[in-house]
Deep mutational scan, measured.
Amino acid sequence: TEVDLHLGDITIKLKDVSEEIVKRAKELFKNGWSAEFVKKWIEEAVK
């Protein structure tokens, strides 16, 4: 499945990412993480 994760003005296309990771990524962004950091976190999380 593909998900578009909207973080501010940046959209990250996610492939084969669990709902849990998407939820967590949104929380991290809301908590002040930059979109770049969230993207890196996701990449690490799906390895």
Score class of each variant (00 low, 15 high):
K40V: 08
K23I: 10
K23E: 13
K26Q: 13
K26F: 14
V17Q: 02
E43Y: 14
L7G: 01
H6V: 15
T1L: 14
K39Y: 12
F29G: 01
K47Q: 12
V46H: 06
D4E: 15
I10T: 11
D16Y: 09
W33C: 08
G32W: 03
I21W: 04
E36S: 10
E27L: 14
F37P: 01
D9S: 10
S34W: 04
I10H: 07
K40Q: 13
K13T: 13
E36D: 09
V17G: 02
E44Q: 10
I10Q: 07
A35T: 06
E44G: 06
V22D: 00
V22L: 14
L5W: 04
I10Y: 11
H6T: 14
V17N: 01
T11D: 04
K15N: 10
G32F: 03
A35W: 15
A25Q: 00
T11Q: 06
F37E: 12
V22F: 13
V46R: 06
A35D: 02
E19K: 06
K15L: 11
W41Y: 07
E19F: 10
I12K: 02
L28S: 01
K47S: 12
S34E: 04
V22W: 12
K47R: 14
E44S: 07
E20T: 10
V22K: 04
V46C: 07
V3I: 14
G32C: 05
L28M: 13
F29C: 02
N31H: 13
A35I: 14
E27T: 08
V38K: 00
D4V: 15
E36G: 07
N31D: 09
I21K: 01
S18I: 07
V46D: 03
K39C: 10
F29D: 00
F37A: 14
E19P: 13
E20Y: 13
S18L: 08
K15D: 06
L14P: 01
I21Y: 04
I12W: 02
K40A: 14
G8S: 03
K39D: 03
K47Y: 07
E43M: 15
A45M: 15
V46E: 04
A45V: 11
T11G: 05
E44T: 09
E2M: 13
S18V: 05
N31F: 13
I42K: 00
V46A: 06
I12S: 03
L7T: 02
E19V: 10
R24L: 10
G8Y: 03
K30H: 11
I12A: 03
K39Q: 12
V22E: 03
L7D: 02
I12Y: 03
L7W: 06
K47D: 07
V46N: 05
G32I: 01
R24G: 08
W41F: 08
D9M: 11
G32K: 02
K40F: 10
A35G: 05
V38E: 00
T1W: 14
I21S: 01
